[in-house]
Design a protein around this nucleic acid. Structure first.
Lengths: 207, 207, 207, 207
DNA sequence: CATGAATGAGCCTTCATTCAT
DNA sequence: TATGAATGAAGGCTCATTCAT
C-alpha cells in the first residue's frame, strides 16, 4: 500500500509541468496560453496536469513561488559581506546577473505577466508583495548600515532609498523584457556609480 | 453626406468608451474585463462599442495611445529649461507628479497590464517601444548636456544613464501600482539626490 | 404636396439597389453579403436601402422576381413559332443563350443561391415554383404538340418529358456556375440532337 | 498512450454528429442552422461537437465528403457491365434510385445547399468539382464506348454528352428537392428513352 | 427624403475542469 | 495512476433593423 511513485518522482513531475508552463506562459501570456499548450509542452496528458495542480491559477502561483525562491537564494549568497555598500553592490550585481542570464529570458517575461496578474489576483499579489517586501527590507538594512557609516546621506529615508534601488532594478527587468538585446553592463555601471558616488564627479583615475 | 452628429460628439463617445475601458481594465485586467463590462460602464449598447472600435484590441491600443499622448505632453511642459540638470529634474518631477496624482491610479494599473500585453502583442509593443524610446531619448539628451557641462561623470554612457533613470521611474510606477499608499515624495527626493550628487555626502549647505 | 421625385426615380433607385445586391450576393452569397456590402456597392446610405426594401429578404425576393421576369420574356420571343419541335428548340436555344451570356454570370450564381434559399424560405419557394411551373408548362405544351404530330414518342408522359428537359437546362446552369469556362455550345448541340432524334444514329443527311 | 475509447466509438460519434448536422442543415440551411441545433439533435454537448470537428465549415465539408463517398459507391456497383449503353443506363438508374430513395430526402436538400455554398467556399468547391469531375468522366467513358459501337452519334463530343447527361441528373435532383412528390419514374423513362433512341419514334411494341 | 448612430439578439468558438474507464 | 472524452459557461463579434435628427 506504499505509494507507487517516490516523493521525488512527484516533485519531478511538478517541476516538469512548471517548466512547460513557464515556456508556454512566457510565449503567450497567462490568458492566451492554455492548459492544452502546457500539457503538450510537458508531454503529458491533460488529466496529469490536474493531478499535480488543482487549477491553472495554482500553476501560476507555483511559478511565482519558484521565482520567489530563486530571488531569496540571492540573499543567501550576498548577506555575509561586511561593508554595507559592498553588500548593496553585491546584491545589485547578483540581481542583475540573474536578470542578464540568457536562461532567465522566459523568467523575465513571466515577471512582467505576474506584475499585471498581481493586480487582479489577491493570492498572487500576496506572494509578490512578501517577496518584494523582503527584498526591499534587505536593501534597507544595507542602507541603514551605510548611512550609519556616513556612506549615504542620512537625510534620505532608508526605506525610500531601498524603494528607489529596488524600483530601478525592477524597471531594468522590464526594459530588458521589452528589449532583450539591451546592453545591461553599462546600466549596471551607472547604478553602481550612483551608489558609490561616482555618478556626478569625473573619475579621478581610470579603473 | 453631412454627418448627422458633430465631429465632437463622435470624439466624445470615443473618449467615453476609453474611459469606461480604463476603469474596467484597471479593475479586472484586459482578459478578465469583458466588452460587456465596458459597455455597461459606458452606459452604451454592445454594438455602439464596436461602432467606435473594431475590436477589443483596438480599445486597448486606443488606451495605450492616449496614455502615450499624455506622456508626450510632459515633454512639452519641460523642454524649455536651460540647465540640463534642471531639465532632468523637471522631467523626473513631472513624471512623478503625474504618477502620484490620485486620478492616475487606474492609469498606473493599466500601465502594468500594458507591459505584459506588449510581450504578446506586436502592435502594442510597437507603440510602447516608440513611447519609451522617445522618453529615454529625451533623458539622454539632457544627460549629454549635463555631461558636457561636467555635471555628470562622462565615463558613463549617456544611453545607459537614460536607461537607468527611465527604469527607476518605471519601477516606481510598478511599486506604486502594487502599493498605492507608498510615500513617493521621499522616493522622489532620493532620485533627485542621486542626480544632484546629494546621495552620498551629507548636505553641507543648501543648494 | 406632389411627390418630390418621379415614379421613375423611385424605380431607378430600386433597380440600382437590386443591381448592387446582385453583385454582392453573387460574390458572397445571401448570408455572407451584408446590407452594408450592398449599400456600399450601390453608393447609398444604409437607411436609403430600407427606404426601398423592407428587409433583406425583400431584396432577395426582388431579385428573384426580376430574374423570373427575364425568364418570362423568353417565352414571349419564342411562343409564336408554328412547329412544336422548332418551338422547343427555340426555347432551349433562348434559355441557353441567356445562360451563356457573360452578363449573366452573376445571375447564374444567384440562381444557385436561390435554389438553396427556396428550401428554407416559403416566400422565395413560392415564387420559384411558379416560375419553373410556368416554364415546364410551356415546354409541356410544345411536347404535346410534338407528340400529336408524331415527333415524340407518345408513350412518354408529356409532363415527365418537360421535367427532363427543364432539369437538363437547370443542370447545365448549375454546371456552368461552377465552371464558367465550360463550352456550352457543344452541350447545346447534344440537347438539340436528343430532341431531334440525332442523338442515336449517325447523321445520314443534313437536316 | 492507449486511447480510452475504441476507434469505433470515435467514428460512431463523428457519424452521429454528421447525421445530426444533415438533419439540421437540411431543415434550415447551413447558415440558419446553428451548432446548437446540431448538438441538440445529436444529444451531445456543444463542446463535444468541437471535439470532433474543428469548425462548422468542417462539419459541412465532412458531410460533403460522406456524400461524395456514397456517389463513388455507385460507380463500383455499375462499372462491370459489358455493354456501354447498358452501363450508362445502369449508372443513370443507380443515380436516380438513390435520389428517389425516401432516405435521401435530406441529402437531396443538402446537395442544393452545397451547390450554393461551393460558390463562396473554395474548399467545398474543390471537393465538389472533383466529385462531379469523376462522375462526368465515368459517363464520358461509357459514351465513348457507345460511340465506338455506333450506338451514339459520333458527331457529338463525348464530354458534351457526358455534361448533358450529368446536368439532367443534377437538374432532376434539384426539381425533386423542390417538389419531393414529383414522380421520378416517368422522368427516368424519358432519360432512358433518350439514351436508347426511343424518344422520337413510337415504340414498335408495348413493353 | 436622407443619414448613419445606436441597438441587442444571437452565433461561433474556446477552454478550464471533471470524471468514467 | 493515467487518460482524454465530455461538459458547459462565457466571450468576442456581427449584422439586420430602427429612428432621432
Amino acid at each position: 500500500m506504499s505509494p507507487k511513485v517516490s516523493e521525488k518522482h512527484l516533485e519531478d513531475r511538478r517541476q516538469q509541468i512548471l517548466d512547460a508552463a513557464l515556456t508556454s506562459f512566457s510565449r503567450k501570456g497567462f490568458h492566451q496560453a492554455t492548459i492544452e499548450d502546457i500539457r503538450l509542452e510537458a508531454g503529458l496528458s491533460r488529466g496529469a496536469v490536474y493531478h499535480y495542480f488543482k487549477s491553472k491559477e495554482d500553476i501560476i502561483d507555483g511559478l511565482r513561488q519558484r521565482s520567489a525562491n530563486e530571488t531569496d537564494s540571492i540573499f543567501a549568497d550576498v548577506a555575509e559581506i561586511e561593508d554595507p555598500i559592498d553588500n548593496l553592490i553585491a546584491l545589485v550585481d547578483a540581481t542583475l546577473d540573474r536578470m542578464i542570464d540568457p536562461a532567465s529570458l522566459a523568467a523575465n517575461r513571466l515577471a512582467l505577466f505576474l506584475w499585471g496578474e498581481s493586480l487582479v489576483n489577491q493570492r498572487i499579489m500576496h506572494g509578490q508583495l512578501s517577496s518584494v517586501g523582503a527584498y526591499r527590507h534587505t536593501v534597507e538594512a544595507c542602507v541603514r548600515g551605510a548611512q550609519a557609516r556616513g556612506y549615504i546621506n542620512s537625510d534620505l529615508e532608508p526605506s525610500a532609498i531601498a524603494l528607489a534601488i529596488t524600483a530601478a532594478l525592477f524597471g531594468l527587468q522590464q526594459q530588458l523584457s521589452w528589449e532583450p538585446d539591451l546592453d545591461m553592463s553599462m546600466a549596471r555601471r551607472v547604478l553602481i556609480a550612483m551608489l558609490t558616488g561616482d555618478f556626478r564627479k569625473e573619475r579621478a583615475a581610470p579603473i
